[in-house]
């Protein structure tokens, strides 16, 4: 780095600040803001084809996930046997179970809708892939949830599953008969993984925009091409959101 001659440098009156671009926190901030520009994190307007019930199931799935996490946090405070001996615990456990049922039902309908819409079109392959990963991660999380019910159902499932997992050679590391290990997988490791995948999935949806139905024209607002050249980090979706597409 070249430095100015000492004689030309001003007298320091206060400690010099490092330039913003020189810190990893500033770089991280720029990276996060580049993912979805500030002010465009949530959609204000959407293309006209989003006014359909089939576009509701993704966010319904997300809402179910929020209820799952909140009820699961409460359940974890009471312990694995709490719901057997407390009416409140039984209620919270039921909320947890039924929100999971809704989560999977809405996720699968979301998946059907996106599959028949070929939603990986328009450079949305990674959005589709992260959705699939979230689905498989959720299967594992639900499986470990069934294992920690501390009832005969959990015992039956774990004793059946152990044979398959042992045959696959992973029983020593993923021991479904170990309640403590399954508890950790269910309340800590897998939710973190699923949560991270879901965040990436949503960021990608915001960047690429929701997939249009087959045959529909994706909104291309006036001046979009010029705006895209000027601000290459903006996605077609954010441009459509900013410019607005009237139904």
């Amino acid at each position: 780095m070249s430095r100015a001659p000492t004689s030309l440098r001003p007298e320091p009156t206060e400690p010099r600040r490092r330039p913003a671009h020189d810190t990893w926190t500033a770089a991280l901030t720029r990276w996060v803001e580049g993912l979805v520009p500030r002010g465009q994190w949530l959609p204000e307007r959407q293309p006209v084809y989003v006014a359909s019930w089939i576009y509701v199931f993704g966010v319904a799935c997300l809402a179910s996930l929020v209820v799952i996490i909140v009820s699961g946090l409460v359940l974890s405070l009471g312990g694995v046997a709490w719901w057997h001996v407390s009416t409140l615990g039984h209620f919270v456990n039921s909320v947890h179970l039924w929100s999971v049922e809704l989560f999977f039902a809405t996720m699968v309908i979301h998946l059907w809708g996106k599959f028949f819409m070929a939603s990986w079109r328009g450079d949305r392959g990674l959005t589709w892939a992260t959705g699939a990963l979230a689905f498989f991660g959720s299967l594992g999380t639900a499986f470990t949830g069934y294992l920690i019910q501390t009832n005969f159902d959990a015992q039956w499932i774990s004793t059946q599953a152990k044979d398959g997992l042992n045959a696959a050679g992973i029983g020593a590391w993923f021991n479904v008969m170990d309640l403590g290990q399954m508890m950790l997988w269910h309340v800590s490791l897998l939710p973190l993984v699923v949560g991270a995948i879901v965040v990436v999935h949503i960021v990608l949806v915001r960047r690429r925009g929701v997939a249009p139905p087959i045959g529909a024209t994706e909104p291309s607002p006036p001046g979009a091409a010029a705006a895209a050249r000027a601000a290459p980090t903006e996605s077609p979706a954010t441009l459509a959101t900013r410019t607005g597409v009237e139904p």
């Binding site: 359909s52 089939i54 039902a105 309908i109 009237e246």
Partner: peptide, 27 residues
């Protein structure tokens, strides 16, 4: 029954009209 119900909901989501947006004064 759960799977059949999901199929029914899927078909209804494709067929039922979505409620029209409210007419805001600034639109």
């Amino acid at each position: 029954l759960v799977i059949l119900l999901m199929v029914v909901v899927f078909v209804l989501a494709l067929l039922l009209p979505f409620p029209a947006p409210r007419e805001d004064e600034d639109r």
